[in-house]
């Protein structure tokens, strides 16, 4: 089923700020095989000049997609999640994410298009502090295989 183009431009705000914790950063770093001490130990991060433990570059995936779940689960969009694969992902950083950050995330559906029999949907997530400082942007493109058929 073709995806509902009326969803383009809709924005979804995460229900609560995401609180970045040292434990979560360390768990994520371990899962991606990264023993860099600035991801695991506050003292190592501080010694390297950081305010606290640093998040790896793909860490925003942990929270930047949560607001999109509301859209993906909306039957009016028409997305068959079993047929979805990840096509592209992009992050643009204004500064590193640190443990202790409280991050607000707003996700906007920026594009839906057909390529052959597949449907491509692109989201942009704007991640900022409560003071309005932009921390990073995440762009996510998924493919629904066969969705345009």
């Amino acid at each position: 089923m073709a995806l509902n183009r009326e969803f383009v431009g809709r924005a979804y705000e995460a229900s609560a700020p995401y609180e970045v914790s040292r434990v979560k950063i360390a768990e994520f770093a371990t899962a991606i095989g990264d023993q860099n001490p600035i991801y695991h130990r506050e003292d190592a991060a501080v010694a390297a000049g950081h305010p606290d433990v640093v998040a790896p570059p793909t860490f925003p995936i942990v929270f930047s997609m949560s607001a999109a779940g509301e859209a993906f689960g909306d039957p009016d969009l028409g997305l068959d999640f079993a047929m979805v694969v990840h096509a592209e992902q992009r992050f643009e950083y204004e500064r590193p994410i640190y443990a202790g950050d409280r991050l607000h995330c707003t996700t906007t559906i920026t594009e839906i298009r057909s390529v052959g029999r597949n449907e491509f949907l692109t989201l942009r997530s704007d991640v900022s502090t409560g003071e309005g400082e932009l921390v990073c942007r995440a762009y996510n493109t998924i493919v629904e295989r066969g969705g345009a058929a």
Partner: peptide, 24 residues
């Protein structure tokens, strides 16, 4: 993709990354 991030930040430093674009 995150494994590539690990390789890259071990090379050039986690605090120095400005963007990261991935194609699956």
């Amino acid at each position: 993709a995150s494994l590539l991030g690990t390789y890259a930040t071990n090379w050039l430093g986690a605090e120095n990354v400005r963007n990261f674009r991935i194609r699956f």
